[in-house]
């Protein structure tokens, strides 16, 4: 009896193309934001501004636009997703597990969960804001050492590095551990202990 490979029926499809497209949209949105930022930056510099001051001024605008996108219903969702990657993952996961708003209306438990989710969003927002501060600092440091960023991809990779760094710091904090526990627990409290999901 030889069994060279296992292809169990429960194995998922190898790749979710929709996920790829969704992330690609986020990357394209990042490019659009950076294009606008770059345009403002160059305009300001052509007016004779100081690099550091111009960067600071434009970065503040960029930061406000990026962070504000998640709370702005009129903003393209991809803009908000750039920094709510984690919340997006959480929502996808809970949705795939059937953990939506309980049938029969929004219960007190569900309202409690939404409150915790908002606190979670606030923590992510702080982390994203810190990541942009770090990105600004890195751009300053590079400029000071004469290093240039010549491609969108390079800038994107730097942005990812900054987000991972500030997110990682947040993740390891005591506040996050406690909030993560409350997030799970408050969601689970919305459902009966039926042992019926698997």
């Amino acid at each position: 009896m030889t069994d060279q490979t296992e292809t169990p029926s429960a194995a998922p499809n190898p790749f979710d193309t929709e996920l790829l497209i969704k992330q690609a949209r986020s990357y394209l949105a990042f490019g659009e934001q950076m294009s606008a930022f770059s345009s403002q930056l160059h305009d300001s510099l052509q007016g004779g501004g100081d690099w550091g001051a111009v960067l600071r001024q434009n970065f503040d605008q960029f930061k406000a636009a990026t962070i504000g996108a998640a709370g702005d219903a009129s903003a393209a969702p991809e803009h908000g997703q750039l920094w709510t990657q984690m919340l997006d993952l959480w929502r996808q996961s809970t949705s795939s597990l059937g953990l939506g708003a309980p049938a029969g209306g929004e219960t007190e438990a569900w309202q409690g969960y939404l409150q915790v989710q908002n606190q979670y969003l606030d923590l992510l927002r702080q982390s994203a804001s810190s990541a942009l501060d770090l990105l600004e600092q890195q751009l300053h440091d590079r400029a000071a050492s004469g290093k240039s960023i010549d491609s969108l991809r390079e800038l994107y990779n730097l942005w990812v590095d900054c987000n991972e760094k500030t997110y990682g710091q947040m993740l390891r904090g005591l506040d996050y551990s406690e909030l993560n526990g409350r997030l799970f627990n408050s969601l689970l409290q919305c459902y009966p202990k039926g042992e019926t999901r698997s």
Binding site: L28, S35, L41, L139, I149, L152, L155
Partner: peptide, 14 residues
């Protein structure tokens, strides 16, 4: 310094 221009970004995105 950021050497990127909107044109360069647009080309990369295409």
């Amino acid at each position: 310094m950021i050497g990127l221009t909107p044109e360069r970004i647009a080309e990369e995105l295409r």
